[in-house]
Every structure is written in structure tokens, then in C-alpha cells.
Write a protein that binds this DNA or RNA. Sequence first.
DNA 1: ATGCAATTTAGGCATTTAGCTAAATGCCTA
DNA 2: TAGGCATTTAGCTAAATGCCTAAATTGCAT
Lengths: 105, 105
Amino acid sequence: MPMSKVFDALSHPIRREVLELLKGGGMTAGDIADYFPVSKPTMSGHFAKLKEAGLIQGENRRGSVVYTLNMSTLEEALHTFMGRMGLGRAEGEARPGTKPQGETQ
Amino acid sequence: MPMSKVFDALSHPIRREVLELLKGGGMTAGDIADYFPVSKPTMSGHFAKLKEAGLIQGENRRGSVVYTLNMSTLEEALHTFMGRMGLGRAEGEARPGTKPQGETQ
DNA sequence: ATGCAATTTAGGCATTTAGCTAAATGCCTA
DNA sequence: TAGGCATTTAGCTAAATGCCTAAATTGCAT
């Protein structure tokens, strides 16, 4: 439900890339951090924001933390917002108020 | 292409509501501002961020500024990101790298 | 040229962000 | 229990955000 936090989390390219990386399955904080040219503490801050938005979760695993993607939070935020904007993912959905809107200038 | 700026613009509820309001057609800055419980200068700052992200544009019209939605920027950013995340809007679209995600341990 | 209405800019304040280094904590293994 | 690796917390700086009031701008009409 924290749509603002989700979009805020998505507003940084490193955090978006982390999500893409996690599509392939869980990864440790260290392995993720090695992909990016910033310090590990900085990455830890990015993980915290992603976690706060509900987009990832961390699990302690033998001295490491394995982060995994929470795709449902992402889907829900995106679909809710797109629904409000009339950007449904179906094809012929003529919605009220969706005038083709002639370009200004 | 400024995907970070688009998501950043979407991270504030007032800015998202402005976009929804503009679905119905262009509106003047003043008319939009009247919908929200913040000062007009604050709203002007929100308009500036939306404009910077390419989500709206303003046109001078008889002493007022009429803002209109730029839906294509929104669609492009959202669809590009969803594509990268494997959140295609069709149902059977097996894209490369879009493993159904069974392998999370 | 004056004035009015609409909008933006300027300046200020409190909070947050993104980055860093250095230090602390956790958790295995020997 | 001591060492060592992995991760986070602490503490800092510089810059950005979100909000405000007051002032400047712009455009149209007297």
C-alpha cells in the first residue's frame, strides 16, 4: 500500500537494477553489492529503502543475508497506479475520460 | 528516457493526483492548485518536477498557464521498466530472461 | 501608464538523501 | 573463545525536498 515509498524506491537506478538482479533468484547482500561501484554501507542503505517499500526481504542464512524479490508489491503498486491512470493492460478498454487528447503545440 | 525523474515525480501523492486530474483534459495551474491543501508556490514546485520529468507540459493561455498530460512519457517509462522486470502486459509472453521464478531455493 | 489577477521566483527552515570512512555487530569455524 | 568474514550502524558533508510567506513577474484590460 505504500505507493509513494515504492515509487521513491524505484527512483534510483541502482535500486532498480537490484530488483532486476533479483529476478534470477535470491542473492546475498555482498554479491549484489559487488555489482555496483559504491561502498557496501551505501548499498546497505539502498537495501533498507527497498525493504521499507516492501519490494525485497532479507533472510539470515549462515552469516550472510540473502535478499529476495517481492514481486507482488511491485505488481500491486504498478497496476493500481496504471488502473487509476487508465493505462490498463487489456487492449480495447475504452474508459471514461480517456479522450485521445490532441497534442498541444 | 529520464526514468529516474519519472519515478521520482510519481513518488509524491500530490503529483500523482495532478496527473489523474489532467486525464480529463488541460487545466490551469490555479484550478489544479485549488484541489490541494498546500500553497500555490508549493504547487508550482510540483508542476516543475512533473514538467522536468516530461509528464506534463504548460502552455500560456490568456494570462493563465494550462497544463496538459503527456501520457506517452508515462507509458514509456512504465512499460520499459515493466519489460525489464518481466511484467509484460500480455499473458503468455515468454521473454528471454523471464524465468517463471521457481528457483528461489 | 496603472492596475489586477495568475503564476513563478526568492529566501528560509527542517528534514531527508546519497555518498564516504571507520567502527560495531553477527555469526560461523577452528 | 578467538578469528574472520559479512553486514549494518555511526557520524560526517553536500545537496535536495517540501513546505511556508513575501516579492517579483507576466499578461490583459482599463
